[in-house]
Simulated assay, not measured.
Amino acid sequence: MTISMLDQKMFKLACGHEVVLGRLSNIDRWVCETCGRPTALTSDPFKSLPLKELDTAQQIDLQAKERGEEVIRLT
C-alpha cells in the first residue's frame, strides 16, 4: 500500500506555513490554520503553482498504480 502523493507533498502558503497539497484541490483560497492569513490561489504567484504541483502528484500516483501498487488517500 502506498500513500498518495497528494497526502505527502506539502505546499508553502503566502504566510510561510505549509498545508498538505491534496487539501488545495478545487478551491480558490486557503486560510492558514496556524496564523489565519489567507492565500489566494487564483492570483500570482500562487495561481499556477498548486495546479502544477497537483498534476505532478497525480502523475506520481498514476505511475505507482501502473506498477501495481495500491495508492490510498488519507484525507
Rank of each mutant, 00 (worst) to 15 (best):
M1P: 13
M1Y: 09
T2H: 12
T2L: 03
T2N: 11
I3N: 10
I3Q: 13
S4V: 06
S4Q: 08
M5F: 09
L6F: 09
D7A: 04
D7Y: 03
D7I: 04
D7K: 02
Q8D: 00
Q8F: 01
Q8I: 04
Q8G: 01
K9E: 15
M10Q: 15
M10R: 15
F11E: 03
F11R: 00
F11M: 02
F11L: 06
K12E: 15
K12I: 09
K12T: 15
L13Y: 01
L13S: 09
L13C: 03
L13P: 00
L13N: 00
A14N: 14
C15A: 11
C15P: 07
G16D: 09
G16H: 10
V19N: 01
V19S: 08
V20Q: 11
V20F: 04
L21G: 04
L21A: 07
L21S: 04
G22K: 06
G22R: 06
R23M: 11
R23S: 11
L24Q: 05
L24S: 09
S25Q: 14
S25G: 04
S25R: 15
N26S: 14
N26H: 13
I27W: 09
D28H: 14
D28C: 13
R29V: 12
R29D: 07
R29E: 15
R29Q: 10
W30M: 00
W30L: 04
W30A: 02
V31F: 00
V31M: 08
V31N: 13
V31R: 11
V31E: 10
C32S: 03
C32H: 03
C32F: 08
E33V: 04
E33K: 05
C35V: 07
C35T: 09
G36F: 02
G36L: 08
G36N: 11
R37D: 03
R37H: 11
R37L: 01
R37I: 10
P38L: 01
T39Y: 07
A40P: 12
L41D: 09
L41C: 13
L41F: 05
L41Q: 01
T42E: 07
T42G: 05
T42Q: 06
S43Q: 13
S43V: 15
S43G: 01
D44E: 15
D44M: 12
P45S: 06
P45H: 04
P45Q: 01
P45F: 05
F46Q: 02
K47C: 05
K47M: 11
S48I: 07
L49R: 14
L49Q: 13
P50Y: 06
P50W: 01
L51F: 02
L51T: 08
K52R: 15
K52Q: 14
L54C: 04
L54I: 15
L54R: 08
L54T: 08
D55I: 00
D55K: 14
T56K: 12
T56V: 09
T56D: 12
T56L: 13
A57K: 05
Q58L: 14
Q59F: 08
I60A: 12
I60W: 01
D61Y: 09
L62Q: 15
L62C: 07
Q63V: 04
A64H: 13
A64D: 12
A64F: 10
K65A: 10
K65Q: 14
K65F: 00
E66S: 05
E66H: 04
R67G: 02
R67W: 03
E69V: 05
E70L: 11
E70G: 06
V71T: 00
V71W: 00
I72K: 05
R73A: 03
R73C: 12
L74H: 09
L74N: 07
L74D: 07
T75I: 06
T75C: 10
